[in-house]
Amino acid sequence: MPADFLQLEGKRIAVFGVANRKSVAWHVVQELGDAGVEVALVVRSPERRESVAKLAGDLPIFVCDVEFPEQIEALAHELSARFERLDGIVHSIAFGDYSEGPKPFHETNKEQFLRALDISCFSLVAISNAFKDLLTPQASVVTVSISTTRMASENYGFMAPVKAALDSSLAFLAKSFSNFSEVRFNAVAPGLLKTSASAGIPGYVDSYLYAERATLRGRAVQTAEVAATVAFLLSPKSSGINAQRLVIDAGMEVNYFDQRLIAGFLGTNSSGA
């Protein structure tokens, strides 16, 4: 197999959402760096830039809080002045305010829901629009979703509908951009991961441990596995994939009735009669 099988060497890609070494975005940066990609990091705040700089070394780091349209536009101008083109964008941005703890979905606060929708979903639309003239005609845009938005996990709450909106937006962005380019829009949709962001979700650890048992291999999905799939979707080798989501859950969705899980459930709930 050739060293540059993915044909990514020399590409320029902006990666949004690096927070720390556990971030999906940081694993993507490492994967792309190994493939010879020129990476530009985009973080949320000047403070975050200082902390990420300790990881990133000489990689350029830009600041953009996607809640503010003027910052997205300013970033587009800043990157245009530095790079004549971008071959891809990685959107690894999500935010959910769980400060009030887990609540029944029908009690979701409107402000919380709309802010999560703005940061986690609409930001992809806004970034794509602001960067449309900087992207090459065959560029690839990849976002990070979740393995399923149809499972009503109480602790994840309003974020699942927000991710469903993100997934739906892929088709509409791909259709819109097809009027003037071949830019592709896809998502990686991982199962439960061990990241700093997930640690803020109430009850996440128990869900993570269950998900690990539910995989066909009995081992949790690794963030590096997600990053490798992102790299594939950014590469010309995935040129026929557009407006899709690739699920990365180690087979969990087909294994909910695994005999080991059932036996464990029956053992826990046995009446002893």
Rank of each mutant, 00 (worst) to 15 (best):
T108C: 06
I119W: 13
Q112D: 08
S128E: 02
L134R: 12
I127W: 09
S128W: 01
S128K: 03
L135E: 00
H106A: 12
F105E: 08
S128M: 02
L117N: 06
P104R: 13
L114I: 11
T108N: 03
F122A: 11
A116P: 08
L124C: 01
L135N: 06
N129I: 15
S120A: 08
A126Q: 14
N129W: 15
N109P: 02
D133S: 15
F131Y: 09
K132F: 09
F105C: 08
N129R: 14
L117T: 10
T108S: 06
T136I: 03
F122S: 08
N109R: 12
S123G: 07
T136H: 04
D133Q: 10
T108I: 01
Q112L: 12
K110E: 07
F105M: 12
F113Y: 11
F122H: 14
S123H: 15
L135I: 08
S123D: 04
D118Q: 13
K110M: 05
Q112M: 06
E111D: 13
L124R: 03
T136W: 02
L135M: 05
S128G: 04
S120T: 13
L117K: 13
R115I: 00
A116R: 02
K132L: 07
S120H: 08
C121L: 11
L134I: 01
D118E: 13
K132T: 07
H106C: 11
P104Q: 07
S120Q: 09
K110S: 06
A130W: 03
R115W: 01
T136C: 12
V125D: 01
L134D: 02
L135H: 01
L117D: 07
K110I: 08
L117M: 12
L134F: 10
E111I: 13
F122C: 09
I127A: 00
A130Q: 05
L124E: 01
